[in-house]
Write a protein that binds this DNA or RNA. Sequence first.
DNA 1: GTAAATATTGTTGTATACAAACAAGCGTGC
DNA 2: GCACGCTTGTTTGTATACAACAATATTTAC
Lengths: 253, 253
Amino acid sequence: MSDKQAGRGRSVSKLPASGDEESQVRSQDGDIYTSIYTAIVEHYIAPGTKLPEDALADSFHVSRTIIRKVLSNLAHDGLVTSAPKRGARVAQPTVEEAKEVFEARRILEVATIPLIADMMTERDIKRLRKQVQEQKKAELAQDPRRAIRLSGQFHKALIAIIGNTRLNEFLRNLISRSSLIIAVYGSTKGDTRSCQDHDNLLDLFEANKTDECARWMEDHLRDVEATLDFGTNTVEALDFAQVFGEIQARGAD
Amino acid sequence: MSDKQAGRGRSVSKLPASGDEESQVRSQDGDIYTSIYTAIVEHYIAPGTKLPEDALADSFHVSRTIIRKVLSNLAHDGLVTSAPKRGARVAQPTVEEAKEVFEARRILEVATIPLIADMMTERDIKRLRKQVQEQKKAELAQDPRRAIRLSGQFHKALIAIIGNTRLNEFLRNLISRSSLIIAVYGSTKGDTRSCQDHDNLLDLFEANKTDECARWMEDHLRDVEATLDFGTNTVEALDFAQVFGEIQARGAD
DNA sequence: GTAAATATTGTTGTATACAAACAAGCGTGC
DNA sequence: GCACGCTTGTTTGTATACAACAATATTTAC
């Protein structure tokens, strides 16, 4: 697949029909992180869902020690909140947080446009085009999870052109949070337009219209934010046990 | 009984800092993080210094469990690196990392200038002026640690005007890393100029010359980066035990 | 029957114990 | 004399035990 995972990011493509490699006794640490991370970011577990250490430890056949570390990392990413003595839950971003995240994305992704335009090569364009195609396919196939993920990957791939790990990680963080925000405030309609949008951006890049690229990005992010409905937060906490059952279909013993 | 390497071993629990037997019930988690964080950022412990869990646990009179969590957080902040099975050390940023950090700062701090100018009030200016005065004083008093910290606080205070937690935390991260970078590649001279610079920026803000503010910030950060000497990395790992005594008294920002 | 107080259960925070891995010191063999 | 392997010691990774706290259920008083 994509041979160019920018930065040392953890590959998020583990979930659907996972290509089963023999990853059993290998570093259990990162795999568990990835599982829960993916489960949250791709809306397999709803915001607000409790994440008890014991249950998770049982699910993944490790001790609470490991789960604790993973949850701590996820908390640092802002995907779970952990109140001092009452455990961890999948984070429920407030409206203020949501607006902050999108404001930060606007600032970052607009400001980096000139640099991106400067360093972008033909191959980059080609790769991005292909990615947009994939996204389009996913949307036609009614696979919103995959579509959202690919949309995020597009933005990540864009900034990855600069090759700055700090920026990559910051945007990765913002995009994870965006996923969560969409889970809480997202409307179920009208997001299919973004695919067209991404194609338009590439056109502008190819035409060397950098200023218009910047304006486009600003508008695009505002559009996405505008599709959110800050009145309704659809929360339906479902049991996570079955979820991780699906995720790692192979039970250890 | 051959004498082994100094700075290791179990005899570190001699710290005067925690001679109080009663205060160890309260300050568990966050204070320890702050202590080590401050120690690193303010150059009390040199990059590359080993941070053995046992020794730290003894120093702070807690178990390795706590230390482990703290080190994990610090690793996430990029202030310590932890190789899989050979422990944690104070991070030694490479030249590439250093350049990435400063590039990220340029992008972020320049891009936010318009927003800052937009939201800045008289009181903000007054507060910032006072802070610059403090910094000037520290520099005259030959207190480079304090001067560096105040310089960082100035930049943080600037972006804090926007009131966006994401941006605040990102810049905080970049600034911590900058401190580390200065510890490794910093020249001992010529940093006193930054104080004047900060005053100049405030003048521009007051004159509503936003564009010039942006250009100023760009130049300023490039100047700071230019004072670095990427050839010499002065590493002198000193014992951290005595260090925490001095620090624990005051908290960090 | 309701509400307050108490008992019980369950979950998290911290410490400690044990096992595995790395590093180094020592000795033997060539 | 040098190199290789064994052994010892130190340090990290993981699991488990125990204690403290929160939440819930139950009992009792009015």
